[in-house]
Amino acid sequence: MTMTDGAITQQSDEAPVDGRVARRQRNLDTVLDVVLEMFAEDMMFPSIEQASKRSGLSLRSLYRYFADPGELVEAAIKRSQARAAELTHLAHIGEGPFAERLDDFVSMRLRLYETNGSMFRATIHNAANHPRVRDEMITNRRLLRDQFELQFGPELAAMSPRERSSAVEAGNVLTQIDSIDLLRRVRNLTVAETDTILRDSLTALLVTTS
């Protein structure tokens, strides 16, 4: 009976704490989603005041969560990157015929851009002022470069060291999200046109004809 009473008492004591934690998480999810929406609208430097107005959460609450706009931006970018991680997965990286690997790779990069392109732009815009954002940007670019090298390992392995180094750097530049953004937004190309450019360029870069 004492144990049962203790369990009941413990549950009663913890319920308000759990409720506050859940409410805090809901508020964080709400405001970070709002910031990501602002990124998508090319508002790359959202203030806490703007986030408060759009989310319906009080300034007092947001300043409890974030000391300054930099922390808000960092948290939003990190939230988006967690989602992006699922999109970058290649189930059988480096395996299978070149045509299949090319299809998987280009489709994945375009899907990643269409879903998270605004987050990548926000990362670039905020990197100069926020060291942690800059570090995340450097890490992400390195991971995307490594992925290119692994996916097309068979073709790269057949090259001389000099050819391989040049191909890796050229392929990396071509397929980074910045480059896809240039094609889609600056050159105003369609997804299909961008897809064709990436496929043709990677084929020319990686497949030797004799």
Results as ranks from 00 to 15, higher is better:
L174M: 08
Q151F: 00
S58C: 06
S118K: 09
S52T: 03
L150G: 01
I8Y: 08
Q25P: 03
K78P: 00
T30C: 11
G70N: 09
L102H: 03
R64L: 09
V207G: 03
L72C: 03
S52N: 13
A67Y: 14
V207Q: 13
Q11L: 15
R185M: 01
A128P: 02
D200W: 01
T115V: 05
V133H: 02
V168E: 04
D13C: 03
R185P: 01
E41I: 05
L28A: 09
H89N: 09
M43W: 11
A7K: 12
G19Y: 06
S47Q: 12
F98P: 00
S160Y: 06
T209L: 10
L28F: 02
N116R: 06
A84M: 08
H89V: 14
R101P: 14
I48D: 10
F39A: 12
R54Q: 13
T4F: 04
A85D: 11
E49N: 09
A22K: 15
R184V: 03
E136V: 01
R134K: 13
V21S: 07
Y65L: 09
F66T: 02
D13N: 12
L198V: 07
T123S: 07
P69T: 15
T208S: 15
E37S: 11
R132F: 04
F105T: 02
D42L: 08
N172C: 14
E136I: 10
M38Y: 02
R145N: 04
A122R: 07
T123V: 08
V106N: 05
S58W: 05
S160T: 15
D195E: 13
L57A: 02
P46K: 11
G6P: 00
N126V: 06
F105L: 05
H89M: 07
R79L: 13
N129H: 14
R111Y: 00
G19D: 08
T2S: 03
E86W: 03
D181I: 01
E86L: 12
Q10T: 06
D68K: 10
D178L: 14
E74C: 07
M119S: 12
Q11D: 12
A170H: 10
S201L: 04
A167V: 04
E100K: 08
T209H: 11
M159N: 05
L156E: 01
N129Q: 10
F152G: 08
E100T: 15
G94L: 10
R26E: 12
S61W: 14
I180Y: 01
V35I: 12
D178H: 12
